Amino acid sequence: MEIGIERARTIIAAALAAGQAAGMKPLSVVVLDAGGHPVAFERADGASPGRFEIARGKAYGAVMLGMGGRAQAERAAQGPAFMAAVNGAFGGRVIPVPGGVLVRDANGRVLGAVGVTGDTSDNDAEAALAGIAAAGLHGEA
């Protein structure tokens, strides 16, 4: 199983809807496959144009490191040198904060990651989790 475009669209629509329902600022959502490649992206009206790179950086770190943004942030706090080295290895493309959510299937296999940006990092993660759940998948924030 892979995420695929239809699941990616479901994730994005549900994440944006969750953000709007919760009164969050305009969100941007990207879905990456297990190789870190974008499957789909959408930016809500009013979201700043630079949000794609932020959303992708959050999701990219999750899929490449096999851990959600919260775990990455904790790792960065405990070992900033490690995260700096990781970011160097990945060309500066990792943003280790909540809002990057690993996507797993029912068997725990990594299918990719979702990156959400636009509100607080914790709110971004909650919107991502709502989108992932709407697609019948499991998120690891």
Rank of each mutant, 00 (worst) to 15 (best):
D124W: 03
V110D: 12
V103R: 13
A76P: 05
R70C: 05
I3E: 13
V29N: 06
A55Y: 04
G66L: 06
F41E: 13
A13M: 06
A14Y: 10
A62C: 09
E140D: 15
L65G: 00
A15R: 07
V110G: 12
G99H: 05
D124E: 09
Q20W: 11
A15W: 09
H37G: 07
T10I: 11
P98Y: 13
H37F: 09
A15N: 10
A113M: 10
A77C: 04
R70N: 02
G92Q: 13
D119P: 04
I5T: 13
G35L: 03
A135M: 07
G68P: 03
A47Q: 08
D45H: 02
R75Q: 03
K25P: 04
T10V: 11
T10M: 12
V94H: 05
I132P: 08
D33P: 02
L129P: 02
A127P: 02
G23L: 14
A17C: 12
A84T: 15
A113Q: 08
V39K: 07
G4W: 10
G112C: 06
G92Y: 11
R9H: 11
S28W: 01
Q78V: 01
Q72P: 00
V94D: 04
K58A: 01
P26C: 07
A8E: 12
D33S: 01
G91R: 07
R93C: 01
A21L: 14
G91T: 12
A73N: 05
A113E: 10
G92S: 13
E74T: 09
V116F: 03
G99R: 00
G66P: 08
Q72E: 00
D122A: 15
Q20T: 14
S121V: 15
E2D: 15
P80V: 00
D124H: 04
A34W: 02
K58M: 01
I5P: 10
M64W: 03
A18F: 12
S28R: 04
F90Q: 14
A55L: 03
G88T: 15
E53C: 05
A77E: 15
A47D: 03
L102H: 09
V94Y: 06
A84S: 15
A141M: 06
Q20M: 14
I3M: 03
N87K: 05
G46H: 03
G108S: 15
G139S: 06
E74P: 00
Q72W: 00
P98H: 12
G139H: 04
Q78H: 08
R93T: 06
L65T: 05
A17L: 14
K25A: 14
E140T: 09
R43Y: 01
G68C: 01
T117W: 02
V97F: 14
A85N: 15
I11G: 10
A44Y: 02
D119H: 05
E74L: 01
R56I: 00
A85C: 13
S48W: 09
F82K: 08
E2F: 06
T10P: 07
A8Y: 07
D119W: 04
G4Y: 09
F41S: 07
P38K: 11
E53M: 01
A62F: 00
Q78I: 00
V39I: 15
M64G: 02
G112F: 04
T10S: 11
A134S: 14
D33W: 01
R109S: 12
G61V: 09
L129S: 03
P38D: 11
R104E: 14
L102M: 09
M64Q: 08
S121G: 04
G23S: 13
A76R: 08
A130S: 12
